[in-house]
Design a protein around this nucleic acid. Structure first.
Lengths: 144, 144
DNA sequence: CTTGACCTGTGTCTAAGGCATAGGTGTAAG
DNA sequence: CTTACACCTATGCCTTAGACACAGGTCAAG
């Protein structure tokens, strides 16, 4: 199979296949005389695995670790279990971050609901974000 | 103020100040004879705005749009309002994505709880991810 | 004058591919 | 046989928002 064939077979893009090839996650059987890369069944299997793992938001580096271990003939499952625990923790963080940000945005929108649009006041870009409180003095920086 | 002074004044890093300077979000008053960049009060004000907007996850490009508009003497507020609506939608997406991913990960962990760690079966990297179902035939790719 | 702490600008690196480019291949029509 | 045209390829640059490393400049103390 050529690059595009492999990509289509597993519903991904040729660029993705090329990328994984470049970083040696998958290896073509050989390059044909015209330089085209030819992939076999094993590459297809690996790509399938990689895509599944990406679905779980595994990083490419993590996937590489898994494949290296499997290539040594060992079970990759313990690594996979460890990574997925880590991924879950990461996702939890992202989740909480998105949650906090959402609240922040919502309350900003709320706060601005009734405020007018002012023209820049010289020292101010947008009073919605900067607020009207002149507390620059608190910062207490010596100008220039 | 020099780069590091400005950075410290607004509780950020010199690298960040340099970055914003390079992409011309803030402009130093002049470069001193030794090549050091000198920032004035206006730069400080702008930086403060930028950092606030970054807190709301505005992209640097979006912030640039805002500043450009303000520099023309117009109100930036309508743009800000538009961007924040967009940001809220984006955050909502991220939020939902994180939510889905979390469920996916959790159920994966659950499903694997009682499964053993197998050694790679030749055609398989990790049966936890790939599953035990031999449905390769469904894909129906002509091998090699 | 020298040491050392601190500062500077510049250049390189990050994740995971997307996109553009220049050129090769294959097939159908003329 | 040649041309046209669609499709394919490999390569290299671009993306975010800075972080980090490096070589050299600056300044006060000794």
């Amino acid at each position: 199979m050529k690059v595009t064939e492999l990509a289509r077979a597993l519903n991904t893009t040729p660029d993705t296949v090329r990328y994984y090839t470049k970083i040696r996650l998958i290896m073509p059987l050989k390059s044909a005389e015209n330089g085209y890369k030819i992939y076999g069944k094993q590459a297809q299997q690996r790509l399938k695995f990689i895509l599944s793992a990406r679905q779980l938001d595994f990083s490419v580096a993590e996937i590489k670790d898994i494949l290296v271990e499997a290539d040594k003939g060992h079970t990759a499952c313990p690594i996979v279990r460890k990574i997925i625990e880590y991924r879950l923790a990461e996702t939890e963080k992202q989740f909480q971050a998105a949650l906090r940000l959402r609240e922040k945005l919502k309350s900003a929108i709320n706060d601005w609901q009734d405020k007018p649009d002012k023209t820049p006041a010289g020292h101010m870009i947008c009073h919605l974000i900067e607020g009207d409180n002149r507390d620059d003095a608190q910062i207490g920086i010596n100008n220039e």
